[in-house]
Computed example of a mutant assay.
Amino acid sequence: MSIFRKCHKAATLNIAVPVSGEIIDIADVPDPVFAGKHMGPGFAVAPVSGDFTSPIDGIVMFVAPTLHAVGLRADNGAEILVHVGIDTVKLKGDGFTAHVNEGDTVRTGDLLLSVDLDSIRPRVPSMISPVVVTDAAEFTISERSKDPTSVLSVTTG
Rank of each mutant, 00 (worst) to 15 (best):
P47T: 03
V19G: 01
T156Q: 06
I128L: 09
V133G: 01
V48R: 10
N76D: 05
A16W: 07
I86D: 01
M61Q: 14
L13H: 02
P18N: 09
I24N: 07
P41R: 10
T108W: 01
L152V: 06
V84C: 11
R123Y: 03
M1R: 09
G103V: 11
G21H: 07
F139L: 05
S150L: 08
A64N: 11
I3N: 12
S49A: 14
A27H: 15
A27T: 14
C7H: 14
L81R: 10
I26C: 10
K37A: 12
D51A: 13
I15D: 02
G42C: 12
H8P: 01
F52E: 06
A35K: 05
D147R: 11
C7V: 09
V48Y: 02
G157P: 00
H68M: 05
T134Y: 05
T12H: 03
I15L: 15
R107G: 05
S54H: 12
S153D: 07
G40W: 04
V132R: 04
L117M: 07
R121E: 14
D147P: 02
G58S: 13
V133L: 05
A27D: 07
G58R: 08
L112P: 06
H68C: 03
A11F: 00
F4R: 05
S126I: 03
G157W: 10
T156G: 03
